[in-house]
Design a binder for these strands. Structure first.
Lengths: 187, 187
DNA sequence: TGTACATCAGTGAACGCGCGTTCACTGATGTAC
DNA sequence: TGTACATCAGTGAACGCGCGTTCACTGATGTAC
């Protein structure tokens, strides 16, 4: 049965939020339309009232995931501290275990490289947003360059740590943490 | 019809080599058993004379991919130079474009994190091998820590560069290249 | 404000398709004598 | 070394399954008068 326009909008938000979680946990292919709709509390049939196809949802979900993930870097009165806390949280064992609420780049990078242009565009915008947020916390003329370099280190560390055994993972995270800690004091 | 034992061994090697290429290009799920067997010059039915299931092939293919990729770091008379060349080649636009012959970690990291234990074990061993190779080219007491940190930066840079648009990709690669060049002179 | 009707969000069955895997079959290879 | 037979690598059809997508249907919502 038909629902009101406001309820439809809420349904759409639930679908996007569920997708933003599931794609990070299971990958772009691993999260099926059926799984996502079920996680949003609906059946699969209604999906196409909200999105032309799966690709459109994936793009919206990636945008939402980056928005959520970059939030601590954007609405802060102390960008340097936010930046430092972001790095520390990024390299934590909690982040390693909780893909679903973690960095979209570390969860989906290679998947996105193989995906369509709409998904890639959403991902590019998200990476820019995170890099800008990090750069705001760096006092230096080449803040953006340093931010991109740091982001690469963070993403690579998490990609590796999640794929290797626990012992090696700890070693990788602490090796990169040492450098992240270095940043705010020595640069 | 039956083929000789030597030819069977050659078939197996062709399958593993084809898989090592295809999984890096298309992902662990994206490379189907049929695609791989076709690339190896056979039909899909014969696959199960060589492997119990797809997971066993994926593990063998990941091992083969890392062996090939880490080779320049291992058989060299000048580890420092090999290490530096490895970093420069890693961050090149050629590597960004040619996934199929590139770093397995940058191509498959998140896929592996979602895969079975056999695949993960092969990946862990591969990452260790590359890290050891890099460390051999670093003169410092904490060579392994620096190598792991460098590897994280390289992997993250390539994961990001492949997923974002060309302009941002260039920026990421050059930001990390600056640091890679720094390593051999200033540390 | 009330009424009559068109719209359409959500349901659940159904579709075509590609996947990993199985299987009967073939004939050359391996092996026991 | 020759012979007879068991083995088995590779083929191609077939399987069950889950996927993205479509569709007829429902009844509450939106809208024109």
């Amino acid at each position: 049965m038909r629902v009101s326009n406001e309820e439809k909008e809420r349904s759409r938000e639930r679908i996007v939020a569920a997708a933003a979680r599931l794609i990070r946990d299971c990958g772009l292919q691993g999260a099926s339309v059926g799984d996502i709709m079920q996680a949003a509390g609906m059946t699969h049939g209604g999906f196409y009232r909200h999105f032309a196809d799966k690709e459109h949802l994936l793009a919206a979900a990636i945008t939402a995931a980056f928005d959520e993930f970059a939030r601590p870097l954007q609405h802060t009165s102390n960008p340097t501290r936010a930046s430092d806390e972001f790095r520390a949280r990024y390299l934590s064992p909690v982040h390693r275990l909780h893909r679903a609420k973690g960095c979209p780049a570390a969860a989906l990078g290679p998947d996105v490289a193989r995906a369509g242009s709409e998904v890639r565009a959403a991902f590019s915008a998200g990476v820019s947003k995170v890099a800008d947020g990090l750069a705001r916390g760096i006092q230096a003329g080449d803040a953006r360059e340093l931010a991109l370099r740091d982001l690469a280190t963070l993403v690579g560390a998490m990609v590796l740590a999640r794929a290797v055994d626990d012992t090696l993972a700890r070693e990788i995270l602490s090796a990169c943490h040492a450098r992240a800690a270095l940043r705010s004091s020595s640069r």
